[in-house]
Design a protein around this nucleic acid. Structure first.
Lengths: 227, 227
DNA sequence: GCAAAAGTGTTAGGTATACACCCATGC
DNA sequence: GCATGGGTGTATACCTAACACTTTTGC
């Protein structure tokens, strides 16, 4: 079956996707940005990676392709979900572009091994003015991330497969910006029955080694509020 | 300033909006549907109202315009928020159309006064197969409505400005599909401090008249879970 | 033996749940 | 006076929050 184009006068806009990819490095929340080169309005301003949707793709396909092509992040390394669609008429000052925004999370080992010059992981506290309407996109993205963290098991996509309960707690503290009580956090998370002990221990640490845990399910699950 | 079109080969898709509008009639949750006439695939199948985004509009503008034009629901009568963007390649079998879905809520008096033949409020329990991917859209829409009801003051958009606490409780029961305890519900909702007594009472009821309440704020607010 | 992080329980306060009867009104 | 829905309080179980010391390891 062949898909026809809509009549020309209806196709005034290009469709794009953009992705706000989060990750934790050095106990700080980071996002992946790339300089935008789109004269005359946005030259060397950081923005979130993205690009146009192709006629053979869904938006989900497009975001995966652009993450791979533009910033060398293969699909398998990133959890993505749709965030919000941005359609302000002048959001891209050159042409009308409507963009479907996504959020994503990557595990720390992916960031550690990240080796691509044209994109940068920057701590969210150091984010300045971004290209297009990406400031707005960032605001929606962090709000979503915080919500998801409390009510789902997204934390698993910001951690290695095996992690200590302290590391898990730190994910919550870093993203939510609050300190949590160690004993209460452990009681809560264990009661939720989403993680299990691997039986293995931390190695090569210069203090008492912690037990390593893993999420029982590899997929995101809804939860009663963790925090 | 004039907005250029993107190059022709990038503009393969038309952009649309669709809106799942909820309302309560006779203590049952209803949605507004309209028969789709789009031969050869969708003829006289119910679908949610919507239409194309125009080059001078944002998606939000478009959804408001189409609700007004296609189903005679003026903006002022409906609370709308963006839901999700649907981009499956064959979601509209004739042309490539990407649609930004919205959910909306209207107050019962709007439905009571509703007088337009080309659209119908139907009880959600009677929804059958819908046009396009609107089944999927409906699933996302109800899930969102349930979430919003528990964590925000959306209920205000499904009720008259003045309502009894029993009516408020019924909104929760109808949408969430659960029975709630009257005393506990009242304690909870009053503790949240979002409604206030108007000082007025129900009139013309054949039993003890209930006190009328109103929401303190006309806009949606986040809440700790009501239910 | 010291520095560093791991691991572990109890108490008190507050919140959620379960539950039943009297009240005001119209007819 | 009866039918209808309005309005109210208490006791218990559960959950949350606050809080400090001992353990294990590397150096």
């Amino acid at each position: 079956m062949s898909m026809k184009k809509a009549p020309e006068e209806l196709r005034f806009a290009a469709m794009a996707v953009d992705a706000v990819i989060f990750g934790i490095v050095d106990k700080k929340l980071h996002v992946l940005v790339q300089n935008v080169v789109r004269p005359p309005h946005y030259v060397n301003m950081p923005g979130f990676p993205g690009g146009l949707i192709d006629k053979t793709e869904t938006a989900e396909d497009a975001v995966e392709r652009h993450l791979d092509e533009k910033v060398h992040l293969p699909v398998k390394d990133v959890y993505v979900e749709q965030l919000y669609t941005f359609s302000e008429i002048n959001r891209d000052k050159r042409n009308r572009v409507i963009s479907v925004g996504y959020i994503g999370c990557v595990k720390p080992d992916v960031i550690q091994a990240y080796d691509y010059d044209d994109a940068t992981w920057i701590p969210v506290k150091k984010l300045g003015k971004l290209a297009y309407d990406h400031d707005d996109m960032y605001a929606k993205a962090t709000a979503r991330l915080r919500g998801k963290l409390s009510y789902t098991t997204v934390a698993q996509f910001l951690l290695p497969n095996n992690f200590t309960l302290t590391e898990l707690q730190e994910v919550y503290e870093i993203v939510l910006g609050t300190d949590l009580d160690k004993r209460n956090f452990r009681k809560k998370i264990l009661a939720l029955d989403v993680v299990k002990e691997t039986g293995r221990m931390q190695e090569g640490v210069k203090n008492r080694p912690a037990a390593l845990y893993t999420f029982k399910s590899k997929t995101i699950k809804e939860l009663p509020p963790v925090v």
